[in-house]
Computed example of a mutant assay.
Amino acid sequence: MKSALLREYDGPLTIEDVEPNGIQADEVLVRIVGVGLCHTDLTAIKGDVPLPLPAVIGHEGAGVIEAVGDEVTTLAVGDHVVLSFDSCRECAACKSGHPAYCQLFAAMNYFGTRLDGSPTLQQGSDDVHGSWFGQSSFGTHAVASARNAVKVDKDLPLELLGPLGCGLLTGAGAVLNVLRPQPGQSIGVWGLGTVGLAAVMAAKAAGCETIVAVDMNFDRLAIAKELGATHVFDPTEHTDLVWEISEQVGGLDYTVEAVGLGSVIRQALETLRSPGTCATLGLQTLENEITVDQGHLLIGRTLTGVIEGDADPHTFIPELIELWRAGKFPFDKLIQTFPLNKINDAIDSFRSGLVVKPVLLTVEETK
């Protein structure tokens, strides 16, 4: 199997031969068909997440199961799956339907090894760190667990489904699982990457009457309008965006912040009606201090953080697929594909904002 290795922070990824370090009893080996590139992958590349190197990242994989461990009963060889984040499925958060807040989330998704400390990948006698979000899917194959592999129908375009495992799930889940707007209510979305545009699509599907979209990228604003935004704003063109939004649409019932900058969070919070709720999703670094005025909260506003859309992938990914089938969640419009061996080109296109959601196809690597 081949994988894209990160050997130095902020360096290029190199396609190299690696091997799985065995398949444990609760694991599956997945032949990756397509894998999305997510902002959190860029965070790892920069070194803002202390993932040990060399490592394979990638956490929006979709593919076909080629092998299953002895204790796996819910999946079989040949099943089509979307890979999402890993969770223990046993702690209080998991059992209450909130696996994104699993007590072992960091250890199972960020540390680069299994819980027992062993790596999932190797190169000769050398360890290669994997288990990135329980999968490390930048390659032709990924070792995952039955816990984070979601079975999907075989008639679906598997090569496009990977982003449902994180970016799309995060934005849509923040709206549909956390904010839960009712038909006719209003919402604003700051930051129109995959997460923000997923929030726009989810707001449209939920029946929001007013959907405000904010970004500095003209092309992203145009996409947002196509996907359901009723009002779009470039903040660089307004001296007081909060006042401008209030003048045009009044205060907003809900806002979603998908950037992670303190100034943006503050703006999204100040645009709310009272009461109203702002969900912050954007990740800059693991330590990211922000300040808000207490007065903005005392009058009934709420600021809440959301990880992975507060979703259970095993139930929410099928829900998003059904919305897509019904034409209410056209996420495929955001995707541009690249062969795996062009991964650094995909990263450059993603960083520059030229492409909303790059998806790497492994077909070129498997011939």
Rank of each mutant, 00 (worst) to 15 (best):
S3H: 14
S3K: 10
Y9Q: 13
Y9L: 10
L13V: 03
I15E: 07
E16S: 00
E19R: 11
G22V: 07
G22E: 05
I23C: 01
R31E: 15
V35Y: 09
G36W: 04
L37N: 05
C38N: 12
L42I: 14
T43H: 14
K46V: 07
P50E: 09
L53N: 08
A55W: 00
G58Y: 06
G61V: 04
A62L: 05
E66I: 07
D70T: 13
V77C: 10
V81H: 02
L83R: 02
D86E: 14
A92H: 12
A93F: 13
C94G: 09
F105V: 08
A107Q: 15
Y110H: 15
F111M: 15
D116S: 13
T120V: 15
T120M: 11
Q122V: 11
S125R: 10
D127E: 13
V128D: 02
H129E: 00
F133R: 14
G134H: 11
S136I: 08
F138T: 02
G139P: 08
T140R: 02
D153H: 14
K154V: 10
P157F: 12
G165P: 15
C166M: 13
C166V: 14
L168W: 06
L169S: 14
T170E: 03
A172G: 08
G173Q: 07
V175Q: 11
L176T: 08
V178D: 14
P181M: 09
P181G: 12
P183K: 05
I187K: 09
G191P: 05
L192R: 03
V195G: 04
G196V: 07
G196P: 10
L197I: 01
L197H: 04
A198V: 01
V200L: 05
K204H: 09
A206G: 05
G207L: 07
E209W: 00
A213C: 11
L221P: 10
L221T: 05
E226P: 00
E226R: 15
L227V: 04
A229I: 03
V232N: 03
E237Q: 15
T239K: 15
D240G: 09
E247G: 00
Q248D: 03
V249R: 00
V249C: 14
V249M: 01
V249Y: 02
G250L: 06
Y254E: 00
A258P: 01
A268Y: 02
C278Y: 01
C278N: 13
A279R: 05
T280R: 11
G282P: 04
G282H: 08
G282W: 02
Q284V: 15
E289K: 12
I290Q: 09
V292H: 01
L298T: 10
L298I: 10
R301G: 00
T302A: 02
I307A: 10
I317T: 04
E322Y: 01
E322A: 14
L323E: 12
W324E: 14
K333Y: 00
Q336I: 04
T337R: 04
P339K: 00
N341K: 08
N341I: 03
I343K: 03
A346Q: 02
S349G: 13
F350W: 01
R351P: 03
S352L: 06
G353T: 12
L354M: 07
V355S: 07
K357V: 02
L360C: 06
V363P: 00
E364I: 00
K367L: 12
